[in-house]
Design a protein around this nucleic acid. Structure first.
Lengths: 352, 352
DNA sequence: GTGAAAGCGCTAACAC
DNA sequence: GTGTTAGCGCTTTCAC
């Protein structure tokens, strides 16, 4: 084990050829006569030579590396995104570099700018308001965003949150729930869409949801939000949480308060994180196709890197996953649910 | 938005100074006369100049970046490690670059070698056998490992798996279980230690665990392993799983097979992932201090980068977390648990 | 205080 | 096929 690693010049000298020959050889850019190739290869093995990617990147201008900034690595929704993005990156011979901005939200921009300098392009999940991401355009690098941006022409991917929450609300209505609460997460981009979806659906029945806010998009946030909602004057019979993590925390806290779930209250979330399935009661949720979001974002970025710049915003379809945390409300007629599918289309005033 | 980003030379020209002055200014390596500093700053703002970290790294030889290779980003155990490592990195002004090797296990070495070239040092969680990590020494970079390596002097961190599984086995014995199965994950480094811990504890009672293997360290692995164990001729009354994910899957599958948990069988895992708490029944597990492992690994690496090279292996203490998935076996006397600490050593030849 | 010049390790014209 | 040369954008002696 040598102290300092050898350079291309060392190899060239050892093999008795020029650096160009070595460079071309290691990049498979050209074939050489068998004796030369043999000598070069021998020298490389001998010296344990490894090409320095930094030096290479400086000239070629590309790092074969893509940056991904996520909001919270502890949230399985984001790890699924990473999984999808990573798989595609690997397939295209890119390395994914991940940054978790949760620990330093104030420095989100700084962190991402620093990341952008070391990679060919970045995929960003951000909490910043849509109108204040101008700086991303000044990165001089391709950027893909999670969530549509109406102010700037940045390619993006997202799942239809409005539709997702509309579906969830409809499901709860169909089950006979009438007093529905929404526990949101105000810092998120998606929160407003989800509120709108719920309210639009309830409005069709002349109803309205009570809107609360969890201070964190985590189980702890849900736990903390629970008591004031469940023990307050307007106890809901169903609760839609901003995400599965909040829902899981809410469930735990509600049980600790003595409620039976789902008999006393139905709970649902968004994301379809893997662990909702193992919770008790198993969590009803909306699958937002996290992994696919990651895949598509990466595909878009790789396309942008290749010069293509056609697609702007890809909208994925949400899928309702009904489990045990939502149940037919006692007193609701059995026919109501069955007729729902037919009933919806003829209703009037469905609009976003 | 300019097409190409400006260089230090552009700034120097615009400010009417030399590149040296600009370089020193941006690195805060030296103060200059107020008018010069003002002009340089103005030029930087004007041109939107950002120093190219690649070019900088080429000269300084450091990237202020640390690589972390984990086995599976979908496993909350690893994301907790990342969380801890990331926090420490940020505090020390380092950026963490993450690589998930799960998607391409065959290329683990290649991936890590590539990563190592772009960072100042790497923290590695590996599935490779201890004796075949010689190549890590030839990276010419500081390396920190998860799990002790007896063959090479590489700094490492780990939680005492032997003790952890011994504790779990003891807990189950105390609850009156006598037929205990271990569902392992043969590909893991830690698996043998865990088997040994369980067997050593049981051996003290003249017992022995049946050892099985889940093919994957995931809920799916646990689900698949369940039926042959629970419906086979030697149905255990308690099952220790290699990790919480396998345990969660096992629980789900066992219920699907019609078993009542924990009445029919107690289940326990390792890691104390956040979602075990929300499962039904809530999962008994051993907290391996994942986040702290990440913190310590990063601390060790930063120390190594600073030239310190004192500590070799840090062993963290496991902590048993008893929840509802393990319960007193019907028929076990109530006094047994309380007196267990004293009673066990003197028992002789208890066998199934 | 400020600047000129020499590279870091590599690739990319362009010769021969 | 193989080699020469000129940099990529930056830091760093070492002069002035």
């Amino acid at each position: 084990m040598k102290k300092t690693s050898s350079t291309i010049r060392d190899v060239a000298a050892a093999a008795g050829v020029s650096v160009t020959t070595v460079s071309k050889f290691i990049n498979h850019a050209q074939r050489f006569s068998p004796p030369v190739e043999a000598r070069v290869q021998a020298a490389i093995d001998e010296l344990g030579y490894r090409s320095n990617p930094l030096a290479r990147s400086m000239i070629t201008g590309e790092t074969r590396t893509i940056g991904l900034a996520i909001l919270d690595i502890l949230n399985p929704h984001f790890t699924s995104i990473v999984k999808g993005a990573n798989r595609v990156a690997l397939q295209h011979d890119y390395t994914l570099l991940l940054v978790d901005t949760e620990e330093s939200q104030d420095h989100e921009q700084v962190l991402i700018e620093a990341l952008a300098q070391r990679v060919d392009g970045v995929i960003v999940s951000s909490r910043m308001p849509e109108q204040s991401v101008q700086w991303m355009l000044e990165l001089h690098k391709p950027v893909v965003l999670f969530g549509r941006n109406h102010h700037f022409p940045i390619p993006s991917v997202g799942t239809d949150s409005y539709l997702a929450s509309y579906m969830l609300a409809r499901h709860l209505l169909n089950q006979g729930h009438r007093s529905i609460a929404y526990v949101g997460f105000g810092q998120s981009r998606w929160n407003n869409e989800r509120i709108r979806g719920v309210q639009a659906c309830l409005a069709e029945q002349g109803l309205s949801a009570s809107v609360y806010d969890a201070q964190a998009a985590s189980p702890q946030g849900g736990e903390r939000a629970c008591s004031s909602i469940m023990l307050g004057p307007n106890r809901p019979d169903a609760v839609i949480c901003y995400n599965d993590l909040i829902a899981l925390g809410f469930i735990k806290a509600a049980r600790a308060l003595g409620f039976s779930l789902p008999q006393d209250v139905s709970i649902a979330g968004f994301d379809n994180v893997p662990y909702g399935e193992y919770a008790s009661p198993a969590l009803t949720t909306v699958d937002l196709q996290s992994e696919k979001m990651g895949e598509i974002a990466m595909l878009k970025l790789i396309d942008a890197l290749a010069g293509k710049n056609d697609t702007e915003y890809s909208l994925l379809e949400p899928r309702l996953v009904v489990r045990d945390s939502t149940m037919r409300r006692a007193g609701a007629s059995a026919s109501e649910d069955a007729s729902a599918a037919r009933a919806i289309p003829i209703r009037k005033g469905t609009s976003r």
